[in-house]
Design a protein around this nucleic acid. Structure first.
Lengths: 231, 231
DNA sequence: TACGAAATTTTGGTATTCCAAATTTTAAAT
DNA sequence: ATTTAAAATTTGGAATACCAAAATTTCGTA
């Protein structure tokens, strides 16, 4: 009997997502390690050790390092030796400015293009953040916060924007997480998120741009404060 | 005799620039090929053939493909087979929006941070564009135009912004080049460039943002027209 | 002739190996 | 004890070999 119907359909569906490579897996795992601080910033990365740790050869591991280089999590020295990135405050400042511009654009586009359902989903996530703060741990609440911003960018309908934004999110994840741990300005965050949601729901592009830009500025000073006292 | 003085200094200086790898070279060459249209958009890329053509093995060539993937010049299908990217008008539209946001930010930052010398250099490049249009060929004039925008972004002093902008430049290079070949709206370009330079020289951040955003809108409609009639 | 299945070829992913550059260690000289 | 040169080690870059998945061709059957 020739295969037909749902079986074929399911197989095609599965086939649509590119089969994950060892390199992509390693990149995911390594990213997690770096973001959670299990690999200290500035620490040299030895390909052979890491490859052995992951149980893969150097070839895919090298590729994983390249991926993370693109995300700013791994940096290469003048002699091509990789190490865990250790961005200065000035670099992070630069990243936040770009991230701000991207989110501001996302806000505008989302006001224009998002479906009503997408906007409601954004509002929903924002409400879930508060709950997560109480019921789940800090980390889960932080993850929810990231998802809030991702949802806004996704709703813009601009795939390139979403991808570029994602790489900046990766670079900034750790420092933003540390900053959020300080627990300052919870009330400020709540208010700024409310402003963002309100602007989006009323599809006021200018207000959305303003609210998101302002939100990033706040993040900037929080991060600066965090890094100062960490030093 | 122990090596000292200028010899050591020179060696250290040379050592500072990362030795370029075969992969980086191949990426440069391949990028050129794609941008000049010697590899048609949509064409499948066979690693073995290309590696042989470049006289290198597949290992560094593969890496070169990854680099160009990051720049949007190579895309991978569901079965991990690489091909020369063939962006739709919708995708290009998305890219231009992001590029616009990046340049708008660059305009703001340049007004704040650029040295006087950098601003004069930007003005100088803009003047050189007109000359190149007469004395040199179209391609040289186009390259000068790219340099104009690069100089603005570089003057912002934000390295991450410059890098991200560069990747979008790479993606958009070919379609912008084709669009510029149509030769329409030379006068419009001249006027818009003048507005940009004026805003920067007077360090009027709001005006710079506006002028650059507007310039990108113009590029957008030119490109749309070019692609329509090419189809 | 048209269709489909099986055999063949092609292709990218990965492991292994070798090599040159860079780093570290060792040892000798002052 | 300090410095410097040479030897040994470590490290990333690149070539090669092999494999499984995918695409193509071949060939038999209706």
């Amino acid at each position: 009997m020739t295969e037909t119907g749902w079986a074929t359909e399911l197989r095609d569906f599965v086939a649509l997502q590119p089969r994950k490579s060892l390199a992509a897996d390693a990149a995911d795992n390594l990213r997690e390690f770096i973001l959670l601080g299990k690999l200290a910033p500035g620490m040299p990365v030895r390909e052979r050790d890491l490859a052995e740790a992951f149980g893969i050869s150097r070839t895919p591991l090298k590729e994983a390092l390249r991926i993370l280089e693109g995300e700013g999590l791994i940096s290469y020295g003048p002699t091509r030796r990789p190490r865990v990135a250790d961005p200065s405050l000035a670099e992070i400042h630069d990243w936040l400015r770009v991230q701000g511009a991207l989110e501001a654009l996302a806000g505008e586009l989302t006001c224009q293009n998002a479906t009503e359902a997408q906007l409601l989903r954004i509002e929903e996530i924002n409400l879930a953040i508060k709950e997560a703060r109480d019921t789940e741990g800090q980390l889960e609440a932080f993850r929810m916060d990231m998802r809030f911003h991702e949802a806004i960018v996704a709703a813009s309908g601009n795939r390139a924007l979403a991808e570029t934004h994602a790489t900046y999110n990766a670079r900034l994840w750790r420092v933003r997480f540390l900053s959020s741990q300080r627990g300052i300005s919870r009330e400020t965050t709540r208010r700024e998120h409310a402003q963002i949601v309100e602007a989006l729901l009323s599809r006021d592009a200018a207000a959305a741009r303003k609210a998101l830009t302002n939100h990033l500025r706040t993040a900037e000073s929080n991060i600066a404060a965090t890094m100062q006292e960490a030093k």
